[in-house]
């Protein structure tokens, strides 16, 4: 049991990150923290792909290195996904700046109150 877990400790970390991210997304009223949670959630997924590509004792996928190689495809995919994630974060932060200048707060509940009062 312990060994089985130890073999999959990376996956454990992945799901821990996913859990933390989800909790922050739902539980936090602060918009910036929500975005941070979203980032953590995505990072978990990125690590999941990287972990899946790993083969015990293999070398990086370079022609100069001896085989066997770890799978290169997930790395490429995740590179793309990271770019997407960065752009998402940028857009989100841009929106938050606008929201802050509009309502003067980053707290979700406070904003809801402002809207209700309008």
């Amino acid at each position: 049991m312990i060994e089985a877990l130890a073999d999959r400790v990376y996956y454990l970390a992945v799901f821990l990150l996913l859990g933390v991210g989800t909790y922050m997304l739902i539980g936090n009223a602060n918009l910036v923290k929500k975005v941070i949670g979203m980032n953590i959630f995505q990072t978990g997924i990125f690590l999941f792909f990287i972990t899946a590509a790993y083969i015990d004792g293999a070398s990086p996928p370079l022609l100069s290195a001896p085989g066997p190689y770890v799978s290169p495809l997930p790395h490429v995919l995740i590179l793309t996904a990271i770019v997407v994630g960065v752009s998402l974060t940028a857009v989100a932060l841009g929106l938050i700046v606008r929201i802050y200048s509009e309502y003067g707060t980053l707290d979700e509940d406070a904003i809801a109150k402002v809207i209700a009062d309008e």
Partner: peptide, 23 residues
């Protein structure tokens, strides 16, 4: 602000959806 707030909500929920898709 209303549209920015709506967009942010959309962004967060949408990203989670897309992340699940990626997973």
């Amino acid at each position: 602000g209303r549209s920015a707030l709506a967009a942010l909500k959309y962004l967060i929920v949408g990203t989670v959806g897309a992340s699940l898709f990626l997973l």
